[in-house]
Amino acid sequence: MPMDWIMGLAGGVLIGIAAAIYLLVNGKVMGASGIIGGLVDGSGRHELRERGALIAGLVIVPAIAALMMGGSQTFLTDNWAVIIAAGLLVGVGTRLANGCTSGHGVCGISRLSLRGIVATAFYIGAGGLTVVIFKHVLGVI
């Protein structure tokens, strides 16, 4: 098995353990877009400390880990128009759908939620089509 797949599996298990702790201890679904989005639109501001602490851990701890590993890279495009369009689409889309890869994908599919499964099918389908069109047809990304 290629090393990337093993690291993927190991990292995935860590993500799943994180989500399991959040559910079993705090009684919450670990959805990144909901946790951030609730602070942005005000619907989750009553949980400011709890959500803020999770976001702090999510930003700071990988920062330290990446520094210790000698740096890391995202290989994100340097096309600002693409970045802004993508960010807006991810922000609007995840809030309309009420979830993203962590909420609908990890937490939804693991409880066999129809909404989670349908959402995942649509975002993977739309993502695949977008890569085909923008990479292979238009050559923008």
Partner: peptide, 9 residues
Amino acid sequence: LFGMGWGLA
């Protein structure tokens, strides 16, 4: 919409 943004970036 989310999938489109996810694919783009």
